[in-house]
Structures are given as C-alpha cells and as structure tokens.
Design a binder for these strands. Structure first.
Lengths: 236, 236
DNA sequence: GTGCAAAACATCGTATACAATTTCGCCATC
DNA sequence: GATGGCGAAATTGTATACGATGTTTTGCAC
C-alpha cells in the first residue's frame, strides 16, 4: 500500500529536511526552471519551503558540493554559471569515465536491465515528439537518465554518484551554451549504444559513447563573451 | 611577500570557518589519527575547535559528502567505516579513472611537472626510511600526493576533486583492511610510472598504473567479519 | 538476582536571535 | 550634473535555545 512508501519517505525525509529541499532545487536546476546565475537567497529559499534559514543554508551548501550552486562569501548562493572552461572539463571528464562505466555495466548487465534501458529510450522518444515546456523538461531528464542508468547497472555506487554530478552539471552547461533547440539531437545514438551492448560489440559501444558525448559538446557555443561576460557575472 | 599569501588565506578562511574544521578533520582521518568508526559528536568537535555546534555540524556534513564521515540520523557522525564492498568499489573506480587521468596528464605535462613528481618521489622515499609515527603519517600523505599530482597536471579540476575523494577514502580502506606494515609497498611503482611517462610509453604507463592500483588492493584483507563487524560498528 | 519499565541524560534536528558584512539610496559637495 | 561618502536596509555568518529522538540508568516487581 501507500503506507510502506510513505513510511520509507517519512524516515528518509525526517533526517533529510534539508535533503528534500536540496533535491527539489536540484531538480529545478536540472530541468532549467532555474537559470544559471539566479540568486538563491537563504531567506527566500527558506520561506519558499516553509523552513528556517538553517535548513535552506544546508541545502544550498550541499548543492555547492555538487557544483550546481556557487556560494560566495558574504554574498550568497547562485545557480552555478559554469565558464566555458568548466564546461570543457565536464565533458572531458565524461569522455574519461563513461566508456569505463559502459564496460563495467556491459559486464554485469542482465536482460531486465536492457529492457529497462529500452523503456527509457521509448519514453525519451515519446517526449521528444510532444510539445510544451513540461515535455521538454521531462525530455531533458530522460536524456540524462540513460547515462545514469548505465552507471547504476555498473553496480558502482561511487561512479554512480559521480555521474549524477556530471549529468546535472552538463544540463546546466547545455542550458547556457546549447545552440540547437533539441538538446537530445543524439537521441538515436542512445539506441545505437544499447544495440552495440546487446550484440556484445563492446569496443564499438565505447566508440559510440565517445562520439555521442563529443556530439553533445559540439552543439555548444563555448566562445568566451568578453565584455558581456563581466556584465553577466555581476547581475544576470 | 607574505602579505599576498596571508590575505589570500585570510579571505579563504573567513568564508570557511567551517571549512577549516573540515580540512583539519579530513587531514586527521587521512593521516589515520582518527580511526574508522570513531564517533564525532557535534558538541565535541565544536568544543575542540572553539566554535558552535552550527559550524561543527556543517563541517561534518561536508565530510559526509566526501564519504569520509557517515552521519546516522539522530545518532551522530562517525569516521566512515567502509565495507569490503565499498572498498572494492573505490579501487574499481580508481582503475577506471586513473589511466585516463594519466593520459590527460601525459599530454599536458611540462618538464617542471616531472621535476615536481620526482621531488615527491624522493620525499616519499626519505619518509619511508624514517621511523616514527609522524614520518608514517607524512609517508601516507606523500603516497597519495603522487596520484593527486597527476590529476593536477591533467588540468581538469573536476577529476582532481574526484581523485582527492578517492585517495582519501583509499587511505581509510587501507587503515581498515591493510595487512602489510608498509602502506607504500608499491613505492618503486610510482617511479616506474614516471619513467614510462617520460619516455612517452603511454600504454605501458597505464598498464603500470593499473597494476599499481591492483597491488594496493591485493594487500588488503577484504573478508567480511561477521560477528566482529557488528561489535566494531558499535564501539571501536 | 533477573528482567522490564520509566525517567533522567545525552545528542541530534530545527528555529530563532544576534553580530558582521555587504549593498543600496540619499544627500552634500565639487 | 556627476561623484563621493555616510547611513539605513538587507543579507549572510555564527551562536544559542528549544523540542525531538535515542541511550543509559535506576528502581521496582517478580
């Protein structure tokens, strides 16, 4: 029934008054309801969630450890505004770890996992064809979930957490520097990767993954905005 | 002069009342002055550093994000006591990322970096020959610094932070499950890796790195302690 | 003497309060 | 009219206070 889930949630959220807020804000950032640079004042966050500044502050601190929020001393917290250089580092990191994760995942993958991956893919495709903001947001999330799922399958909780951070930060980068309207220009590439895994073509799957990541990065416009950059760093 | 550095430090530490404490505790954990499972009560930590529970709590929270401290709801914070499975995941993660980091580092390495690496190696060797607790602790740190330095050279701040976490947690694992007295049984392996990089034998350097990590893990006794495990989790 | 229950104690979770720093607006002055 | 400084308002940094939860101890009954 609902009781089990509710109790579980209650037990979690009890310790995690702050974590609930953290998760809510993170979701808002990843789904781009919050734009990079937006100020997240402790009081505002606290009022919004009906908690004290203490918890709001804890949540913001947590997000800063994940790189989604930058806190500046005596000035407050802002949704992270990754520099082009940071963006490059994020994708460099992904190219570095995702082939390895894919290999680990492929070694342990079960038929049920493949089914699950294909379900994700279907969902992603469905959302792509839909119109509207909510569909867009769900699509963004689904696109990241594919990469996350591989980390889950790999069975390494540490790499999973790291990938969560990388995917979330990627979403931020794409929001800032993305050019093409469709963030998931490489939707079909996900399918190709699954197919390669299924047919045990591991090296090819890794190659596809590398290309996929590179394609995402290639869609960005990572040129520095000199004069604009200063203005934006101040206010926007 | 000193002023620039001092000011920089002052600005840093001002924002980081909590971060100073976090760093101090982390250092104590990594250098094994604090054993896994040790209780870190918020009040005690606060009193120790002459700050309120607020800051102590923030520091402990931060350490829990790094996996060095585990906080249990309504029970308090403890120096992390990684399970054998967690230990395996940590080394699995290192095998996954360190070759990639090494490749990145090799691509950007400058002569000055190699000099620096060799200096680290020398220092490590010197500490190995010394006796005493302090030398041991410094040796542990130096051994990790080699791996960290490669991440620094790679120029990717994200991977650098990730490696910092992995090295710190490795230290914890070795403290728990290490068998041989010398934690740095593979000291010479560090030198071999540098040599391989210097002579541009990249594939060999990666192989050496993988073997090195595997050697460290092989020195562990990762068998589960059933009855003992429970007792230790309580008190020790 | 043993076992259970209840209360005292300790510790954490959260809110509120105060101090320090920054920011913004206003007025005087050039 | 522009500029610079001074003061008020807002925001963050830190401490303290109070309620909730877990742990230990004490006392009573069997």
């Amino acid at each position: 029934m609902k009781s089990a889930a509710k109790v579980q949630q209650a037990e979690d959220s009890a310790e995690t008054g702050a974590q609930q807020i953290r998760d809510a804000i993170r979701e808002a950032i990843v789904e781009r309801r919050l734009s990079p640079g937006t100020k997240l004042s402790e009081s505002d966050v606290g009022n919004l969630f009906n908690v004290s500044r203490t918890l709001a502050r804890a949540a913001l601190q947590a997000l800063s450890y994940e790189g989604l929020v930058s806190v500046e001393k005596n000035r407050g917290a802002f949704v992270a505004y990754p520099s082009p250089d940071e963006a490059r580092q994020i994708f460099s990191a992904r190219r570095l770890v995702e082939p390895g994760i894919l290999r680990e995942a492929a070694a342990r993958i079960k038929p049920a996992d493949i089914t699950h991956l294909r379900q994700l893919l279907l969902e992603e495709g469905r959302l792509m064809s839909e119109r509207g903001q909510t569909a867009r947001r769900a699509e963004i999330k689904a696109s990241g979930d594919f990469h996350l799922m591989l980390a889950v399958i790999s069975g390494n909780a540490i790499m999973q957490r790291f990938m969560e951070e990388l995917v979330a930060r990627s979403s931020l980068v794409i929001a800032l520097y993305g050019q093409s309207t469709a963030s998931s220009c490489g939707h079909s590439e996900h399918g190709d990767i699954i197919s390669a895994i299924e047919s045990n073509e591991l090296d090819r799957a890794c190659q596809l993954m590398l290309h996929h990541i590179t394609h995402i990065e290639a869609d960005l416009d990572l040129r520095e905005r000199k004069s604009l950059g200063l203005k934006e760093a101040f206010e926007l």
